[in-house]
Structure formats: structure tokens, C-alpha cells
Write a protein that binds this DNA or RNA. Structure first.
Length: 509
RNA sequence: GACCCUAUCGUCCAGCGGUUAGGACACCGCCCUUUCACGGCGGUAACCGGGGUUCGAAUCCCCGUAGGGUCGCCA
């Protein structure tokens, strides 16, 4: 049996785990002191391509005894958020143990297989900052890949499956019926030793009782999922199978198959599922079910990644905003919960805001310009210094980037559209006062926030009104809306010409 | 129908035989403040039900109930 030779021992990773456990508490103490700085590291790390986290890292020296985990998605055209978390747990475990993270594409279903669909997966993983040590380099099934256990597309592994079916057939462990090949499944309950769920004894269901055997190769010669999954895991030397709990019941089949091939099955870790906010199953149509929802709706990948790993897992000390490096150091299988989690969009938004606030300015500019462009706001028409100054007044004020066009879009739109509230606020009396302020501003030699503030307060004083009486009409005139960045700073960025012009426009309405 | 998993504030997590059941998001007050946020302070809010075991149960066991998953020539 070539199977036993191909299979690698599974204990290798544990020495490393102990080391990590030993160093983690110390590191976390350091990090709690300085929350800001480590956060910056996260965004940086998530931004960088795979190489930053992998190839330079001395702990990543290939080790035949180490952990080998895989993410094996089917290219369905979208990357489910639950799938992304499964990938994340595998990736974190690999990085935590110094093991190998493998990406394998289960493209056996030709009907819904396309390069676009594969790209959705590759891009999704890259967006989150997850790099794979072995797997495809492009979406082309026949294209280049890295790793010596390929091909990494199931569509390219047909001979392996045929050979394995033959092996089972020749030993009487499988048989042909109606042109299909069926595996002789044990009738005894199967013990599944799960690292998350514990020991599970899976008995046969009533239907299985009637006929426990199952098809491993269809009459058209194509192998079925349970079979290819096991064969690939075996031949790729997978040591730990970390996957959704929806596969737990089927694991008895996989264990039986491994035994038929004469090898110990890998260690299993079935992780809980992600449900909708109302507890229902998250299906393709639900908002936020696809990773693309987050890439397109103003989320920072580092925040999504952080939030995702807190669904079903948490560090012992209750920290929630956790730098990626710390996540890798702390992550481990035994701490994974056994019950499903509901996805809380509000909390993700909060966390996204935390990351947006703490990230380096350049990173914020990059994300912002991209978001504005998507909203039809072209920042390229403005000097870079102006764009940066404008965005500086917005940084720290948003939870998700998609709030930006409404929040700071006025910097790049002329004339500004006054909303209903703004128009209502510009009463004849308010206009009169605004006119006074406009004239005061027209006479300013240096249009700085400090001068603007002083001039406004002076004007208010001479009018005998509170500052707010002038502040609000001024804000409406300049931005068209009741809320936004700091008024004086926003006006400084806008500059004298724009501010006066906008005040004139508001007075003319 | 059978099999498997699960069950602490509305939500995400702490808890692992003895706690005033803790934190975070959200929510509600107050403070800060030119708006909106941030931040600070305070508050509302939970052990699914019933039996055991034990001096003592959110923690262990059993039964119910509820939710989720699985029983394909889908993946």
C-alpha cells in the first residue's frame, strides 16, 4: 500500500505548541500596555503579501514532522464567510505550530467550475492576508503551483483516485454495482476522536443500517467527495483536518476509508458553524454571507480577520482587538468552542472602527481613496496634499469606510448639495448672521483653524449669540449636512476661496 | 424517521464544584465637546426546564425541550 508511505506522523507540531504557550503570556502583557502600536502592525501584516509573513520567518523551515493542514474549498463563485473562517483557523494553526498551510481546490464539479470562481477564492484569501505554502499560484487548474504534493486541483488528480479505487477493489474492500463502485462500510459504530468536540461515537442511522455501503466512484467513472477528500488528505500528508461541524457525521466514513487504506486517520477538529443574527442558517443570499460583501462595503481586512477568529474562539484573557502576531501566538485548537455562533454585524463595525482609527495614515488614505472612487468621487482631480489633509479630518470618525462619501465627500464636490435639514436651518435670521461671519472670514489674512475659530467667536460675541448659533449655519453652508469633521479644521482644509463661495451659495438659495 | 453536536445577558465570549456570575458589542443615563465620533463614569440585562450526584452545581450525570448538522452516483 502506497498509502502508509505517503502518510506522515502527526505528533510533530506539539513541541512547538508548548514553546508558544510558554511565551504567550509574556507577550500579551507587553501588548496590553501599548495598544496602538501593535494595531498598526496588524494592518501592515494583513496588507503585505504572503511573503512578508512566511518566507522570511525562520520558524517556517520545512519540517517533515510538522503540522500539515489544508483548506479545500469548492469553487462555487463566492467565498462563504464560514469558509473564510475555516481557512483562517487552518491558517492560524499552521502559523502557530510552524506547520504548512495547503490550499487545495475541489473542482470536481465541472458544472460550476471556472477560473473566475477559483479567483474569487484566491482573491478572498489574499485579501484577508492568508498566504498558502502549497497550492495553486493561479486560477488555472493546469497552471503553476507551489509545493511537491500537487497537483492541487482535484480535476488534475484523476489517476490517483482511479488507482485508489483499484486498490480497494482488488482487496475486496469495495465492489461494483450498477456500474458504480461502492465501499464496504463497517456496520460498527465508529469512534471519532475530535480535538474540539471530544470523542464521538457515530452509530449508523436507520437508512444506513439498511445499506451501510456508499458509492465512492460513480458509474461515469468520477469519484465522489468523501472519497477524493480522503485520498487527497492521505496523499498530501494532512495531519489535522480542521473543518466545519457539518462534516462531523460524515467523518465516520472518512475514518473507515483511512482504515481501509491501512493508515491512521488525521486528527480532526470540527469547528462550530456561523449563523445569521436570528440564528438561522447562513445561506448564499443572506447579507454578509459572502466575503465579497466585506471587501465591497468598507471593511478593513484586518478587522474582518480579527472579528472572524473571535467567533468560536477567544484568548483566555478577554482581549478582543488583537494584533495578528498575537493571534498567531495565542491561537490553539483546545480553546475552540463547540457551539455555533451568530454573526453580529454591529460588533464587526465597531471592530472595524477600531482598526480604522488605529491604522497608519497612509493605509487610511489608500482605503479611503478606493472607497471614494467606488462611490463616484474622484479625488485625482485634487492635489495630493489637499486630499490627505481632507482625509486627516475624517480619520478616526468612521466605523466603516462606506460612511466616508457622505461624511467627507463635500471636500471633493462643488457645489455642495444642501440637505433638507440644512435648508430648514437657514432661516432669514440665520442667513443674516452667516453673512456677518462670511464677511469676517473674507477679511482673514491667514485662513487657519485657529483664526477661523477666533473670528467666529468674535462674530458671535458682537452679535450677542452663542457660538453654536454661527457654527451650525457655517457647517451647513460648507458641507451641506448637520454633522461631519471638526468645523474649523474642515474650513481650513477647504480654503478661503471655497468657504466664501459656499457661504455665498448658501446665502443665495 | 434515525444518527451526531450544542445550550450563560439581545449578540460574541469568561467561568471549568464554593464568584455580589465577569468582559466586549448593542442599548439607556451623565461628563467631555463647534457637529458627529472617540474617550471617561454609571446603568439595564443571562446560567432552557425537570430530576439526580454532592455539605455545596452555571459547572458532573440522566431525561425532556429547543437549535444546528448528517444520513445522495452534491460538495
Amino acid at each position: 500500500m502506497t498509502g502508509s508511505a505517503a502518510f506522515t506522523p502527526q505528533e510533530g507540531g506539539h513541541g512547538r505548541e508548548l514553546q508558544w504557550l510558554g511565551t504567550a503570556p509574556c507577550a500579551s502583557r507587553l501588548l496590553r500596555r501599548e495598544r496602538r502600536a501593535p494595531l498598526a502592525l496588524v494592518s501592515h501584516a494583513a496588507l503585505c503579501s504572503a511573503d512578508d509573513l512566511s518566507d522570511d520567518d525562520p520558524t517556517r523551515t520545512p519540517n517533515p514532522m510538522s503540522v500539515r493542514v489544508r483548506f479545500a474549498p469548492s469553487p462555487t463563485g463566492y467565498l462563504h464567510i464560514g469558509g473564510a473562517r475555516t481557512a483562517l483557523f487552518n491558517w492560524l494553526y499552521a502559523r502557530h505550530t510552524g506547520g504548512t498551510f495547503i490550499l487545495r481546490v475541489e473542482d470536481t464539479d465541472a458544472a460550476r467550475n471556472s477560473q473566475e470562481a477559483v479567483n474569487v477564492i484566491l482573491d478572498g484569501l489574499r485579501w484577508l492576508g492568508m498566504d498558502w505554502d502549497e497550492g495553486p499560484l493561479t486560477a488555472d487548474a493546469t497552471g503553476p503551483s507551489k509545493g511537491d504534493r500537487g497537483p492541487y486541483f482535484q480535476s488534475q488528480r484523476k489517476e490517483n483516485y482511479a488507482r485508489r479505487v483499484e486498490a480497494l477493489l482488488s482487496r475486496g474492500l469495495a465492489y461494483e454495482k450498477d456500474g458504480a463502485v461502492r465501499f464496504r462500510m463497517t456496520r460498527e459504530p465508529v469512534l471519532i476522536r475530535d480535538l474540539v468536540v471530544g470523542d464521538v461515537t457515530r452509530a449508523l442511522t436507520d437508512r444506513e443500517e439498511a445499506d451501510p455501503d456508499f458509492v465512492i466512484m460513480r458509474s461515469d467513472g468520477s469519484p465522489v467527495f468523501h472519497f477524493v477528500n480522503v485520498v487527497d488528505d492521505l496523499e498530501m500528508g494532512i495531519t489535522h483536518v480542521i473543518r466545519g461541524e457539518d462534516h462531523l457525521s460524515n467523518t465516520s466514513k472518512h475514518v473507515a476509508l483511512f482504515q481501509a487504506f491501512g493508515v491512521e486517520p488525521p486528527k480532526y477538529a470540527h469547528i462550530p458553524l456561523i449563523l445569521n443574527a436570528d440564528g438561522s442558517k447562513m445561506s448564499k443570499r443572506d447579507d454578509g454571507a459572502a466575503l465579497a460583501y466585506y471587501t465591497e462595503n468598507g471593511y478593513a481586512p484586518e478587522a474582518v480577520l480579527n472579528y472572524l477568529c473571535l467567533l468560536g474562539w477567544s484568548p483566555k484573557d478577554g482581549r478582543e482587538v488583537i494584533p495578528l502576531k498575537q493571534l498567531i501566538a495565542d491561537f490553539d485548537l483546545p480553546q475552540i468552542l463547540r457551539h455555533n455562533a451568530r454573526f453580529d454585524h454591529e460588533k464587526l463595525k465597531w471592530m472595524n472602527g477600531e482598526y480604522l482609527r488605529a491604522m497608519p495614515a497612509d493605509r487610511f488614505y489608500e482605503l479611503s481613496v478606493h472607497t471614494l472612487a467606488r462611490a463616484g468621487v474622484d479625488t485625482n482631480r485634487f492635489p495630493t496634499a489637499y486630499v490627505k489633509a481632507a482625509l486627516d479630518t475624517c480619520m478616526g470618525k468612521l466605523r466603516i469606510l462606506t460612511e466616508l462619501p457622505a461624511y467627507g465627500g463635500f471636500y471633493f464636490t462643488d457645489p455642495v448639495a444642501l440637505d433638507a435639514e440644512a435648508k430648514a436651518a437657514l432661516t432669514p435670521e440665520a442667513r443674516e448672521r452667516l453673512k456677518k461671519l462670511r464677511d469676517a472670514y473674507a477679511g482673514l489674512a491667514e485662513f487657519s483653524a485657529a483664526n477661523l475659530e477666533a473670528a467666529l467667536k468674535e462674530t458671535a460675541k458682537s452679535l450677542g449669540v452663542k457660538n453654536g448659533v454661527l457654527v451650525h449655519p457655517a457647517r451647513f453652508a460648507c458641507t451641506g449636512r448637520p454633522s461631519g469633521p471638526s468645523l474649523y479644521h474642515l474650513m481650513e482644509v477647504l480654503g478661503q476661496d471655497r468657504v466664501l463661495a459656499r457661504m455665498d451659495a448658501a446665502l443665495a438659495v
